[in-house]
Design a protein around this nucleic acid. Sequence first.
DNA 1: AATCTATTCAACTAATTTGTATAATAGTTT
DNA 2: AAACTATTATACAAATTAGTTGAATAGATT
Lengths: 220, 220
Amino acid sequence: MSASSIKEQVYQELSRVTHAISNPKRMELIDVLSQKDYSVEELSKEISMSVASTSQHLQVLKSVKLVNAQRQGNFIIYSITDDSVLRLVSAVKELGFRKIAELERLISDFKADKNILESITINDLLARSKKEKVILIDVRPEDEYKAGHIPNAVSIPLAQLKKRLNELPKNQTIIAYCRGPLCVMAVDAIKILNQKKFKAIRMEDGYVEWKLRQQEINQK
Amino acid sequence: MSASSIKEQVYQELSRVTHAISNPKRMELIDVLSQKDYSVEELSKEISMSVASTSQHLQVLKSVKLVNAQRQGNFIIYSITDDSVLRLVSAVKELGFRKIAELERLISDFKADKNILESITINDLLARSKKEKVILIDVRPEDEYKAGHIPNAVSIPLAQLKKRLNELPKNQTIIAYCRGPLCVMAVDAIKILNQKKFKAIRMEDGYVEWKLRQQEINQK
DNA sequence: AATCTATTCAACTAATTTGTATAATAGTTT
DNA sequence: AAACTATTATACAAATTAGTTGAATAGATT
């Protein structure tokens, strides 16, 4: 175990990258940071973990350049390095959601649990918006919307939805989205809207999925 | 730690996928299997590890459906589940090669070491082959070529190259490829060809990279 | 049916990883 | 310059992982 070949070293280094995302909390951190930059303290709340542990996980991610750290006043703000990280996570999810039986079970439980009758994808949205005018609402917290959103989407954070129902039409279909497939904000939004007799559909994909899809389209 | 939320369970499951490839030997196994199906014994030779350990690694990969096992006579033949696995590995490499300083160093050492003067990519090849007739040779073992290769490529395994030089033209540029960026077979081929005064260039990408690129193109 | 062979299982040790609490640090603000 | 605060480092126990050797298994061949 003295002079290992370059090939072995390369595999060693590459596996450091995957090791960094091979922990549920770190994967969740990447997912949260995919929406918007956050401080350590905010992140520790998001992932329900002590600040010290959160910091440690962030350092693991930083050591393989999956995230960047930058001081802003009293806080250190973490952010995703670039879109290649999003593509990596997207590839993991694609494989996981398709292939792992346990995940399929979890997701179908989840759907049953949430009474999701219909849910569309980015591609459905793109097709639909070509044919008709679509009312698209972004129910994530406002700062995440500000950091980036799907064009023509209106920001109505879940917390404000009940008060702002008058801004929405009753005779048109409303499409609601949030952070993506694992996020329940849009589900809750649909529940509220349906209860109030709006025609509302949930879109599973979020801003990140939209952004990646755009890049694919632009690659032509 | 009793009833964890579905979200946490999903992250848990997803991290099992990344954990499976977060080991150098397992990543190497995936890479080898990306070329062609292999038995456990063959794989154990390829990755220089005991059969028992190789088998254990393969079971980890199988448990998250990254590979399939199938009996064929006395042997159990392992194969990559499907192209989503290739995309995942490709995403890891993309990020790793770009972002990890240590990897950049390793690769530049590697290139210096091998005296690689020029090397092209899949895109270069596609562009070139539109303009002119290209002599493309596949220097991998013949069975890997048989399992799949870039169209119009001729199979000349590295081991046979010296004997078969008469099959190649001296006045045209020859492009050689092997398993991909981490493989040295094409490098050795170029050395031989240049020594014998052929005009030869190495293509870094291999059959897998070509296949993924084709899929991107077809997605339009 | 007996033998053979490739593969997997079991048991074990060494090494690594995880998370928490507490202490130290580094930068901001007053 | 002092006080403050967010973040990171340290130390530790519990849990998990990696690799080896030798035994067991399951299927194919004779």
